[in-house]
Amino acid sequence: MDRTDEGRTGLPVVVGVDGSESSLRAADWAADEAALRGVPLRLVYASLWERYEGAQLAEELNGRPPEQVRAADIVEAAARRVCRRRAGVELSTDVLPEEPEYTLVRESRNASLLVTGTRGRSGIAETLLGSVSLAVAGHAHCPMAVVRGSHDNRAMSGTHGRVVVGVGEEPAASAAMRFAFEEARHRAVPVEAVRAWRSPAHETTDHPLLAGEPARLHERQAVETPAEALGDVPAGVDVHGRTVEGRPRAVLVAASHDADLLVIGARRGRRRFGLQLGRVAHGVLHHSVCPVVIVPEPTRTAAA
């Protein structure tokens, strides 16, 4: 059974590193996050990672051929970089001779947040999410951040002063909403709760004889959903809702252009490996401009 939000308080932020610039940028971001939360940072390298993602090493490791770069070198380079960025953060490291997906999913059981970078297989451009990050995002037991944006190989600092959270069909008691509220409190920025809405395909609204009430009904329902989600906002957090007509994936990706962080929930399915990513989460992970956090939503149990 996964821990509750409260049960993860004080647990470390865990970041997976593999020697790539993308993973070091993720380590930068994770260090900032650990400092905000006042928790330790744990750097983990699963030594079989390169089997999946190639060996595109960071500049600070490029002095030697890939086969001469040891796992310890990769972790040490990441640790030095983190210490330069956030000297006050308690830091631990580990090198594990395991499959990266297995390692990171296991680490997520005892983490407040799991962080990875984005990198396509063998260094493909970052419009594609690396296979490891995508697989782990579908199974992590804690919230998972995929650090996107900022192609200068440095973590993207908060420049927009906004956390955006996607509002789903059932926002009440949403773990994603709670995470967004807490993140905004740490960062001292407001939350924007975004709800996308569309009329069903069979209800055409662009014809003058058919437009009107059907569209207004769906829009009204969309407006009411964020209002419900914002009914229990913690003190000190500034939140407002916004509804946008359009496909959820496109609406959230557009919102990411003006956000420091995009938070979305993912409902656990009944399959053996837990959290299953839907089309919205999958699309946002591939195309968001800012870092994305996928928050597992607890499975509802049927009434007896």
Rank of each mutant, 00 (worst) to 15 (best):
Q56T: 13
E59T: 14
R249K: 11
P190D: 12
H257K: 09
E192L: 10
G166L: 07
A235V: 12
A303Y: 07
V167Y: 02
A27L: 05
G269W: 02
I264K: 06
Q276Y: 02
G168H: 15
V194G: 01
E169I: 02
S108W: 10
V95T: 00
L41H: 08
A145F: 07
R121L: 15
G19I: 03
A281F: 05
A193R: 13
L36S: 03
A34G: 13
P296L: 01
A72H: 01
A173F: 07
D258I: 03
V69A: 10
V233A: 06
E53C: 10
T127Q: 14
R249I: 03
A259L: 01
L262F: 05
E182N: 06
L57H: 14
E183L: 10
R220E: 11
E183R: 15
E101Q: 14
G158C: 14
A176P: 10
R85G: 07
P234N: 06
V147L: 11
Y52N: 11
S22P: 03
L96Y: 03
N62W: 07
Q276D: 02
E107G: 05
I74E: 00
V147A: 08
V167T: 07
M144L: 02
A250S: 13
G130Q: 11
L134M: 15
Q56R: 15
G278R: 02
L48R: 05
L261W: 10
R220N: 15
T118G: 06
V164L: 04
V223Y: 04
E98V: 09
L217T: 10
H240G: 03
Y52M: 12
R271T: 11
C142Q: 03
R81M: 04
H139R: 14
L96W: 01
G63H: 09
E245G: 05
V115G: 03
R247T: 04
V244P: 06
V263I: 04
R162M: 01
G212S: 02
E219D: 10
V82A: 12
I264C: 12
H139A: 10
P100R: 00
R271L: 11
L113F: 13
P100S: 02
R272E: 04
L11R: 00
H141S: 13
V105G: 11
Y102P: 00
V284P: 14
V237S: 13
V146N: 07
G88R: 05
L24T: 05
L285W: 11
R25K: 15
H151L: 12
A188P: 13
L104P: 14
S23C: 09
A140P: 05
H282D: 00
